[in-house]
Design a binder for these strands. Structure first.
Length: 486
RNA sequence: GGCGACGUAGCCAAGAGGAUAAGGCGGGGGUCUGCAAAACCCCUAUUCACCGGUUCGAAUCCGGUCGUCGCCUCCA
């Protein structure tokens, strides 16, 4: 397996330290709804994790929740609630978003506010080693104490200074020094520390948590490309300075960013579509196919046309996975291994999901072809479902609100008189069922009988009326099947 | 200003020196069907932004031009 490592800027052979892959992905700051840019990132790392498991690795996956930060505090103050209340609310929303996108939960979701002791321990260690210094109740990391600072972003301290927008660094020794511990301002949530009341800076929690839950060296650390600098650069500086161990992370993986129209989708620009909004419009499988049809390191632009295309593709895979009218027939000769190998080969090369998906579509075509020829392709269907699952595709029908019974009852009573025409008995009003399945059974049976009598105009009327109600009919060799219109 | 990525069919998007330039969507034609739907079959890039160069051979490597985007500041 090869993975692209941001640190080396090359693809490298993936060799984790042990059988259990230690994987850390930067989580969210819950002060607002998560948008589909977040969705993209977590879908990407979900697939990476699923694929590692598919390849036989155990994975320990940790994702932080930054539940204290300026934006949370400001927002909570605006709303007149506590910052922990606000953070909890949006963290819960985030977990629902993830579940709805079929993203498997992390093994641990540490919260910054629950890890203060470890955070203080790390800061204290950095101070003791001369990598950090206190000033006015805050503590800063001394970037000049780390000789390879900038190695992840591939920039030198000098080049960062040139043209960088740097504010006059009152308390800081060097403009690039960054805060580890922020002195409390009145009215802000704070914790006691050796430097006085305060709260953690943004970067330090990731160092503390990864150290606590995964150890001194992680196999994989992931996040969006926008986190490379300064966040991940600073994590490296903190962690390696604290432990004295290099590297902090063996493989740094970063996904490209989702764009909306001309610009990056981001909270600060306000041009965002929330995950729940996207899910109202599209099936989670469609969103995943949209994301996975381009390589994870490339930027991707959210466009309704592309999502619609993904929706149609998802529908085809779904139909294939659940199809199969030729049961009990001769087994189709489909070389499943070829498809598995193609899938694996694609994924082994830095998670080549576009080609992995292409393999799925090719397999689906061959299954349908076998179907068409009257062969049974159960094994191949199973393989399709299994490989789809590695990409986190459920291939399940979207859960729609239940059909209204009333329109179906009305339809049944209005076609009652046609039943005689079809050679069937009319159904007494009292015996009209009130559950969808039974109603549909009677309606389709009536229509089938009408078709047998070649009463096409009546049969077609039933079909178009059902379409209005939200039911699509398909007349297959094995009879009429119905499903919810999407 | 510095660093980096990208420009492939109507749209989305793989491919990274050599065999017919994946796949999805859309469109056209056909098979099946009473008609549909679904599915299947065929067609839809003689060419990879443009200009030069290296090479027996370039969409792929090098240089330049144009264009788009990201990071350098909170961000997945």
């Amino acid at each position: 397996m090869k993975v692209y490592n941001t640190l080396s800027a090359h693809k490298e052979e993936f060799l984790p330290q042990g059988d259990e892959v230690k994987m850390y992905v930067c989580g969210i700051t819950p002060y607002d709804h998560s948008h589909i840019g977040h969705g993209m990132s977590y879908i990407v790392f979900d697939v990476i994790r699923r694929y590692l498991q598919f390849r036989g690795y155990k994975v320990k996956y940790v994702q932080n929740v930054t539940d204290v930060d300026d934006k949370i505090i400001n927002r909570a103050n605006q709303l007149g609630i506590s910052s922990s209340e606000l953070a909890e609310k949006y963290a819960r929303g985030y977990f629902k978003d993830m579940a709805d996108l079929n993203i498997a939960p992390a093994d641990i979701y540490p919260r910054a506010t629950q890890e203060i002791a470890k955070i203080i321990e790390v800061i204290q260690g950095l101070v003791n080693k001369g990598h950090a210094y206190a000033a006015q109740g805050s503590v800063y990391f001394r970037v000049r104490s780390k000789d390879d600072y900038g190695k992840l972003a591939h920039r030198s301290l000098k080049s960062m200074m040139a043209g960088a927008r740097i504010e006059a660094g009152e308390e800081k020794e060097h403009p690039m020094d960054f805060v580890l511990w922020k002195a409390a301002k009145p009215g802000e949530p704070s914790w006691p520390s050796p430097w006085g009341e305060g709260r953690p800076g943004w970067h330090i929690e990731c160092s503390a948590m990864s150290l606590k839950y995964l150890g001194e060296t992680l196999d994989i650390h992931g996040g969006g490309q926008d986190l490379i600098f300064p966040h991940h650069e600073n994590e490296i500086a903190q962690s390696e300075s604290f432990t004295g161990q290099k590297p902090f992370v063996k493989y740094w993986l970063h996904n490209g960013l989702l764009q909306l129209g001309e610009e990056k989708m981001s909270k600060s620009l306000g041009n965002l579509i929330t995950i729940q909004e996207a899910l109202e419009m599209y099936h989670a499988d469609a969103i995943r196919i949209f994301v996975l049809s381009s390589h994870y390191r490339s930027p991707l632009t959210f466009a309704d046309e592309a999502l619609e295309a993904a929706e149609s593709g998802a529908e085809r895979l779904r139909q294939t996975a659940h199809g199969g009218y030729a049961s009990g027939a001769k087994q189709a000769k489909i070389d499943i291994k070829t498809y598995r190998d193609r899938f694996t080969e694609a994924m082994d090369d830095d998670f080549g999901t576009p080609q992995a998906l292409a393999t799925l579509f090719d397999l689906a075509r061959e299954i349908n072809r076998a179907d068409e020829a009257g062969y049974e392709a159960k094994e191949a269907r199973r393989a399709l479902t299994e490989l789809a699952e590695v990409l986190g595709l459920t291939l399940k029908e979207r859960e729609l609100p239940p059909l209204d019974v009333e329109p179906l009852r009305e339809l049944l009573s209005s076609i009652n008189k046609w039943r005689q025409l079809a050679g069937l008995k009319e159904i007494p009003l009292k015996e009209t069922p009130d559950d969808v399945a039974a109603l549909m059974e009677l309606i389709t049976a009536t229509r089938s009988a009408l078709r047998d009598k070649e009463q096409w105009q009546y049969a077609d009327k039933i079909r178009s009326r059902l379409e209005e109600i939200g039911v699509t009919l398909e007349d297959t060799p094995k009879g009429t099947v119905w499903r919810r219109k999407r």
